[in-house]
Design a protein around this nucleic acid. Structure first.
Lengths: 139, 139
DNA sequence: TCCTTCTTTATAATAATTCTAAAGTAAATA
DNA sequence: TATTTACTTTAGAATTATTATAAAGAAGGA
């Protein structure tokens, strides 16, 4: 796959999502999507990486805008889970949660109401501390 | 169970956790733990509730301190999951994650590597949007 | 090219949380 | 019990992640 083909791919990816292929979006898209393995990042880490790996400059707000535009277009998924606030729970036993984002409510699920049958091994040198299941709700 | 017994319980709960039973801690502990059902809250919501339900005044920092002290003592669990930052993932397919808090790293787990056998029904009027599994790692 | 619309940018604003330093209180000691 | 020490609370400043704002810049069509 030549560089040219890739460039056209990126352009199409943006165009078909209703996003103008601006210099910034193209560069960020190339950085994010032209790779073999999937890639996890935060806005902060992406900002630092772009600074190192490209010659262009990006305002932090542009990175936020772009990443969210890509997310809205379905090109990225967001692993956000609980928003900004930390929840506390007087139930200290092992259990899981429903999360209702409509009204930001957590509801306990007893550990024995969920049975997990198959689980992957922890990566090398690591152990499993615990398993948390979140069932996200909608109306 | 008389009020007196409860008060002693709270004192013991604090003492045995190495926490001095100060006025603030005792009041917050009574508010959190003297109830039948488990209770979910954020610092913000707890602050508002304490303001309404008690006559004492609490600095916000005290509520943060106290809640974390209770958490460290094992009397509360924290449903925090990913800290403050939002992660993005170039993998947009349905999948789960390992989370390694040692180095704040997310690792993808393919959807078919986890099988959930039993799952509770969504609460009345709600539907299940999706199920996220986090396997938290330790060394 | 000109115009309209969308984007980027720098900066300010917001929200959640933590830090700091001083004042206050509980426990330990004399 | 009086004194000392160590831990807590407090108000406010600082920090961090994120979003909003308003002006300047770039893209696409007539």
């Amino acid at each position: 796959m030549s560089k040219n083909v890739k460039k056209i791919d990126i352009f199409n990816k943006l165009r078909s999502s209703g996003l103008r292929p601006t210099k910034q979006r193209v560069e960020i898209a190339k950085y994010l999507f032209e790779r073999e393995k999937t890639f996890h990042f935060t806005v902060e880490s992406l900002d630092k990486l772009l600074e190192k790996k490209t010659t262009s400059k990006f305002a932090l707000a542009t990175i936020y805008n772009t990443v969210h535009a890509f997310k809205d277009a379905g090109h990225l998924s967001e692993v956000e889970v609980r928003g900004k606030k930390t929840y506390f729970d007087t139930n200290v036993s092992d259990h899981h949660h429903f999360y209702d984002s409509e009204n930001s409510e957590l509801i306990d699920i007893d550990a024995n109401e969920i049975l997990i049958q198959k689980i992957p091994k922890a990566p090398n040198g690591k152990k499993i501390k615990n398993v948390e299941v979140f069932i996200n709700l909608k109306n």
